[in-house]
Design a protein around this nucleic acid. Structure first.
Lengths: 247, 247
DNA sequence: GCTTCCACTTGATCTCTATCAAAGCATCTG
DNA sequence: CAGATGCTTTGATAGAGATCAAGTGGAAGC
């Protein structure tokens, strides 16, 4: 349901970026110009990539690892407002400063493009502008879906919602549509989850324990999750079985 | 801080649409083509314009009145995910169906464009595509700012946040930057506010009474609000005094 | 004028989640 | 191995907001 542009990845083995991203590898034919302004950056877990208010002189995609967008109040309360998984786009063409902190939640590699030349390219290449609009609409959908989670769901439903997003994005590659169990490692600390869900880390821990006790999920160690029945998890999340499209 | 495109409205008296919208009036020079596919629609308060999942065969701007975007869970819990004030854009170029209900919160007039021709125009007119991207980025910023409100603010802060948005968007026209009191009529019922804020209507009512008792706001009747000190209200909202850019 | 209706207010109580506090359990360090 | 450190779990308690239940007040209709 997601892909707006069908990109053929068969000749693109070393490209980690999936359909939604703007990627020099995938579009080498039409976007050779990007090669010149492209560079890679690595970050360590915990590192802040951009502070809220800073100049942001690049755009880019996540290659590997996880980044988060967070907003912070003066008194220290924080809310994660976006979770960037591999292939997700970061950047605000036409804008100068970042309205939120961007942090590396795990070790992270990004594929960046200098903003100025990227914008020029965008202005002369309708294709890119169009694709960016589609990506931004996707992000907007995800943000709005998440508003329902934050505003109206219980702690237990919030956890189930988060798990089902991560399961779908992280683990389902190669398992699409299968009914079997889904297995993955949680890429977030309990604290990061609490920042995303508008909860405290204690509540996150308690609800995860409860879902485990009720066998909605199986836990090995603290991070290794097995979901025996995805449908059951989505019921717990309060989603209709159809399944959304978050983040 | 908001306008990305400076449009001169001095010769545009009958155009209700402000800087952020795509508007045939304002851009008559370059967008004459739009005239042919433009039409107006009126709705009564309470009417549903689009149901979640429906085909959405137009895009458009709010001319007068207020519309809301809401998501609903199977058990009836609802969350408003967007509030559309005059000049705001509705529509998802490139998408077929709506992911949420669109409702007229007050009597409403919209300026619509048939989607197909609008999209064709968009594909051949980089200017429009570019402007749409900017508008979508604005909406994304607003949605993310609202995630902080939903996830981390107290009921009192939520109400103050909502009042300060409405005050800035609704009443400040012609009062920009002034330090004097701000006066406006609340365009939302207590229930609509509760849907927007992730609260119950009783809590909304109690917190409004509390803000009134503490003289953060003055109330005449149930809807007529005076804000004697905007700075005070924004402190109550937990915003830094700079002031955000919501909705 | 009286009734009805609707949006709103206010009160009493309950419950979920936050808060405060302590302890468990890996991994790393010396 | 002992100790430190970081992430996590669990327990006890408190508090913000939900829920249930009346009641108010203004506008519309008869």
């Amino acid at each position: 349901m997601t892909p707006t542009f069908k990109i053929d990845h068969t000749n693109c083995a070393d490209c980690p970026i999936r359909h939604r991203a703007v990627c020099a590898h995938c579009d080498a034919d039409e976007l050779e110009e990007l090669e010149g302004i492209k560079y890679y950056r690595s970050f360590e877990a915990g590192q802040t990539i951009i502070w809220s208010g800073d100049q942001m002189n690049f755009v880019g995609s996540v290659v590997s690892g996880i980044a988060s967008l967070t907003q912070t109040m003066e008194d220290g309360r924080t809310q994660m407002v976006g979770l960037l998984l591999p292939s997700d786009f970061v950047g605000r063409p036409g804008r100068d400063s970042a309205p939120y902190d961007v942090q590396a939640t795990t070790d992270l590699v990004m594929c960046c493009f200098r903003k100025k030349p990227f914008e020029e390219l965008m202005n002369t290449t309708p294709h890119i502008a169009h694709r960016l609009l589609q990506m931004t609409l996707d992000e907007l959908d995800a943000a709005r879906e998440w508003m329902l989670v934050l505003g109206r769901k219980t702690a237990r439903e919030k956890i189930a919602s988060l798990l089902s997003i991560i399961a779908r994005r992280d683990a389902s590659v190669g398992q699409r549509g299968s009914d079997g169990p889904i297995v993955f490692d949680l890429p977030l600390t309990r604290e990061a989850m609490s920042d995303y869900l508008g909860l405290t880390l204690e509540t996150v821990s308690r609800q995860i324990s409860a879902l485990k006790k009720d066998e909605v999920i199986l836990l090995e160690g603290k991070r290794h999750v097995t979901i025996p029945d995805m449908g059951r998890l989505m019921e717990e999340a309060g989603d209709d079985s159809d399944g959304g499209f978050l983040v």
